[in-house]
């Protein structure tokens, strides 16, 4: 199915999405990758708040290249999601509803997604120039010292993704592999 979805991503919308759905995403998403995840988990362990409201939020695993003058952002494609697996169940428990990345997720992440009703989308890796055209606003929100790994609040318009793992744990990568 081809769908147009806007964020925040409610549990109802998330539950309606199925592995294989092709989605155009519009609204706020948060860019965060390895180092930002580490800090967020450390903040939670210390009883502190996260730098943004994670309830029904979508995180994009992204570290963009620098923008030229007049550009919103530089190249902005997905990074490998599996590196965030260690940190992800704790964020899902706090209300994280969607993730955009590429590549496989761990069993623990998929189990957490099923429990909390979350969705994992893939964007096309290595298409960062094209994907940057769907990002209309970008601002650094937290951890600026991390450079490209800072948390950014992005506004995306008709951002092209595909549902790879849905809230029932159906996995498009696995299904393809299983049919070999």
């Amino acid at each position: 199915m081809n769908l147009k979805i806007t964020t925040p991503l409610t549990k109802e919308i998330a539950r309606s999405l199925k592995a294989g759905d092709i989605v155009s995403l519009t609204g706020v998403v948060y860019a965060a990758r390895d180092a930002a995840h580490k800090r967020m988990i450390e903040a939670l362990a210390e009883g502190k708040d996260l730098p943004f409201d994670i309830t029904d939020a979508v995180i994009y695993y992204l570290g963009p290249s620098p923008a030229r003058e007049g550009q919103v952002i530089g190249s902005a494609g997905p990074t490998t999601a599996g590196r965030m697996d260690k940190y992800t169940p704790a964020l899902l428990a706090k209300g994280l509803r969607g993730m955009i990345g590429k590549g496989r997720r761990s069993d623990a992440v998929v189990e957490s997604m099923k429990e909390t009703g979350a969705v994992y989308f893939a964007a096309v890796g290595g298409a960062g120039a094209l994907l940057s055209k769907h990002i209309t606003k970008s601002e650094v929100l937290a951890y600026e010292d991390l450079g490209t790994e800072a948390i950014r609040r992005l506004y995306v318009e008709d951002f092209p993704v595909i549902v790879v793992i849905d809230s029932e744990g159906k996995d498009l990568y696995d299904r393809k592999r299983n049919t070999l």
Partner: peptide, 20 residues
């Protein structure tokens, strides 16, 4: 998409991939 991406990279001077 990948072909379009290469075209945009060249014309708009955006790196092909953010992981340079």
């Amino acid at each position: 998409m990948l072909e379009e991406n290469l075209k945009i990279a060249k014309e708009d001077q955006i790196p092909i991939c953010q992981d340079t």
